[in-house]
Simulated assay, not measured.
Amino acid sequence: MFHYTTKENDMTVEQLLRERWQAGKKTVHELRMEKGVKDVEGEPLDWRSPLPTGTRLTFEFPHAPSTYESDHADHLDVIYEDEHILAAVKPAGIATHPATPGEKGTFMNQVIAYVREQGGDYAEHVHRLDKGTSGLILVAKHPIAKALFDRLLEQGQITRMYVAEVDGEMRRPRGSIHYPIGRDRHHPSKRRVSPSGQSATTHFRVIRRTADSTFVEAELETGRTHQIRVHLSHIGHPVKGDTLYDGSETPDGNYRLTATKLSFVHPFTGELTTVELD
């Protein structure tokens, strides 16, 4: 369930859902059939009646549960949360979501446990992080938020920043890496720079250098699988711990790569929203 206050005069519920938010047909149909859009008194609204600016709406989703098994949420580090989304930290070494039904021990198992403790039953990740990568993941708390944030991600309107420790001394203080990325025909889970791959751009700047490594901040302009890992390896500076792409080994086997910042214009409030690790 979430609340929304209309910002335009004479907009109908139908227009808000179908035109402004472009919510999925299934979601719209279920909301209509279940009379899931109500006023402040809890009364169902006529979807075709124009509403004045400032009308307070309540959206309820009676049949929109997520199917993840609940796991312990004791150690879940939630950095940001509102009615629509939350951003929490995925530790390195665990998967973002289950690979098979009933699997536990992933980030989303912890998230759904947290959401259910608060009386909710829906949580779906907007993007993913590799198992060896740590950091911020954005999670939608209802189906309309999922649709809107998926669209923002697809359109490149969610800024995602990472910090990586890479092997060697990176001499260029900043730059951009423009290489297309495709599948590696010789390794099922590996990607490589390929002329026939999808276009990909990563911006970077050096933060500091050590005797055998360089710390860089990287920003994704596109979101290809393993993009930062592939790009940094291709220019001769693989992420430490990322042995798949020729990085040096780390004691714990995890990558020295952390998603540190998310920034976007919130589709429900219109405000620039930034979530950042300390």
Rank of each mutant, 00 (worst) to 15 (best):
H3P: 00
T5W: 02
T6Q: 14
Q15T: 12
R18F: 00
W21C: 07
K26W: 12
T27C: 15
E30N: 13
R32H: 14
R32C: 08
E34W: 06
K35R: 13
K38M: 13
K38Y: 02
D39F: 09
E41I: 02
E41Y: 10
E43S: 12
E43I: 13
L51K: 00
L51G: 13
L57C: 02
E60W: 06
F61C: 00
S66Q: 00
E69G: 00
S70L: 07
D71T: 05
D71C: 05
V78S: 02
V78E: 01
D82K: 00
V89A: 04
P91F: 04
A92F: 06
T96G: 04
E103S: 12
K104A: 09
T106L: 06
F107N: 10
F107V: 11
V111F: 09
I112A: 03
Y114L: 07
V115Y: 01
A123T: 04
A123R: 08
E124A: 14
R128W: 08
L129P: 12
K131A: 05
S134E: 15
I137Q: 10
V139I: 12
V139M: 00
I144F: 09
D150I: 01
L153M: 14
E154N: 13
G156M: 14
G156N: 15
I158A: 12
Y162N: 13
A164K: 03
V166F: 06
E169R: 14
M170F: 06
R172V: 05
P173W: 00
I181M: 06
R183A: 10
D184A: 03
R185Q: 04
H187M: 04
P188E: 07
K190M: 05
R191S: 08
V193Q: 03
G197T: 10
F204D: 04
D212I: 04
D212P: 05
D212K: 12
S213H: 09
T214V: 10
A218K: 00
E221S: 08
T222W: 00
G223T: 13
R224S: 04
S233A: 13
H234C: 08
H237P: 07
T243G: 03
D246C: 08
G247C: 09
S248G: 06
E249D: 13
K261N: 14
S263D: 05
H266G: 05
G270W: 03
E271F: 04
T273L: 05
T274F: 02
V275R: 03
E276W: 05
E276S: 10
